[in-house]
């Protein structure tokens, strides 16, 4: 078995740090020195004020559920969920009091509650045409 994993983020700049140890992967934020807002991922310009004076920050792995829905039908297009569709939660997860991030939710749909604590769950979504593992993220209950 190779000791080096060939892994890439599903979106460039989405994660902070190496992707080898998924238990230690964080989402990356870009904090603006001009207005103080934080955007998701490694950004060239602040989504609020347009400033390029941004610093990367590793976002905390814990969050709370701000709101959610349950997707009852298979989403259109190139959806990479389970081959046999199962309704799933999608939510806005509030992280570090600065950002609400849209993400798929792992808890059973009946267990979803606004305000519930959640934890980031980075995972291997698929292997791409170059053999690299593509890393995506969801949020799970604290125990998951």
């Amino acid at each position: 078995m190779s000791t080096e994993t060939n892994r890439i983020a599903i979106k460039d700049g989405l994660f902070a740090g190496p992707l080898d140890d998924l238990a230690d992967v964080h989402l990356c934020g870009s904090k603006c020195a001009a207005c103080g807002e934080t955007g998701l991922g490694s950004l060239d310009a602040c989504p609020n004020c347009g400033s390029a004076d941004l610093s990367p920050v590793a976002l905390g792995n814990r969050g709370t559920l701000y709101t959610y829905t349950i997707v009852r039908h298979r989403p259109p297009g190139n959806y990479r969920g389970p081959a046999e569709f199962k309704p799933f939660g999608l939510g806005l997860v509030e992280v570090d009091g600065v950002l609400r991030i849209m993400a798929p939710l792992l808890p059973t749909i009946d267990d979803l509650r606004i305000g519930m604590p959640l934890r980031l769950h980075p995972y291997v979504l698929r292997t791409d045409e170059n053999g690299a593992e593509v890393i995506a993220f969801a949020y799970g209950a604290m125990g998951e």
């Binding site: 829905t69 997707v71 989403p75 297009g77 969920g81 999608l90």
Partner: peptide
């Protein structure tokens, strides 16, 4: 789209 965030009604529903 890959992660299933591509349904317009999901956004309205969260609001």
């Amino acid at each position: 789209i890959e992660l299933g965030m591509s349904m317009n009604p999901a956004y309205w529903s969260m609001r």
